[in-house]
């Protein structure tokens, strides 16, 4: 482990996930330093989302270790991992569709409120104070993406791009140290994607975040990531600076082999 040099915020050692014969991710090693913005790319089915699912406790790894801030994550439930400071978004948006936009963000604050059922039933001063500050925080977050005007709308009625943004805000509301974004630009047009990538960089600064970003279109992440890991069929086939990755023949081959074209588009 890297104890002498800078300590990693998140570290995985030989992380492996097998599904009934299929090795979805094998020997995945990652060291994430504080405040880094790292890209995880690879063709469809490469195992990127599976890495997120292991990190956040949705899947239990078949092998290997995950350590966040010196704490092993392997046996923790998803909600415990969130409390340790890691939040995520989903590739197929998972908002609370029937709840309001504001409630979606307020729910992100859930782990930070502290009043009991009795305070709820009696609506004590403490209850109002907590609710008021939660609301205030949530509205502030909504302003980041200009969504405060939609606060009372049901989340399912938001335009698609706004839904993706709302999901990021909900994750941010948990006040994570590490933010895992699973294809945040999927389904967005060129201009929206551009804006989103800018905002992600700004969020990292403003919230002192460390970000791991999945993207299958490698061009999108070239501009903002300091480091990129490339997965193909569960194997880490390359890692390094965006420039190196772009010209790496193994990477190009992997992308071309995957039905082609994605490296160019």
């Amino acid at each position: 482990m890297s104890t002498l040099d800078q300590r990693s915020l998140l570290e995985t050692i030989s992380l492996t996930m097998r599904f009934a014969g299929l090795v979805a991710v094998s020997n995945f090693n990652l060291q994430l330093q504080k405040n880094e913005l790292v890209g995880l790319i690879g063709p469809n089915g490469a195992g990127k989302t599976t890495v997120f699912n292991m990190l956040t406790g949705v899947y239990r790894p078949s092998d290997g270790k995950m350590i966040l801030d010196d704490k092993p994550l392997n046996d923790l439930k998803p909600h415990n991992i969130t409390r340790l400071g890691m939040a995520r978004t989903f590739q197929n948006i998972r908002l609370f569709k029937d709840l309001s936009v504001l409630d979606n963000v307020r729910l992100g604050h859930h782990i930070h409120f502290n009043y009991g059922l009795l305070a709820t039933a009696l609506q004590t001063k403490h209850f109002y104070k907590e609710e008021a500050s939660t609301q205030e925080h949530s509205l502030e977050l909504l302003k980041i993406f200009d969504l405060e005007k939609y606060q009372d709308l049901q989340a399912k009625n938001l335009p698609y791009g706004a839904q993706r943004k709302l999901e990021i805000l909900r994750a941010l509301a948990t006040r994570p140290k590490i933010l895992l974004l699973d294809e945040p630009a999927a389904g967005l047009n060129h201009k929206e994607t551009e804006e989103l990538m800018q905002t992600i960089q700004k969020l990292r600064q403003d919230f002192d975040l460390t970000i791991l970003l999945i993207e299958h279109d490698m061009k999108l992440v070239m501009g903002i990531c300091e480091r990129i890991l490339v997965l193909d069929h569960g194997e880490t086939i390359a890692q390094g600076k965006p420039k190196e990755i772009q010209s790496n023949p193994i990477v190009i081959k992997a992308y071309l082999g995957d039905g082609g074209g994605e490296a160019q588009t």
Partner: peptide, 27 residues
């Protein structure tokens, strides 16, 4: 009052999407 509180919202979030609820730290 439950419905207007964080406790109630947590219950609603379970109805809406259990995986998403866990992902934001709701046990």
């Amino acid at each position: 009052r439950l419905l207007g509180s964080s406790h109630g919202r947590a219950l609603l979030s379970i109805r809406e999407d259990e995986i998403a609820a866990e992902s934001i730290g709701i046990p």
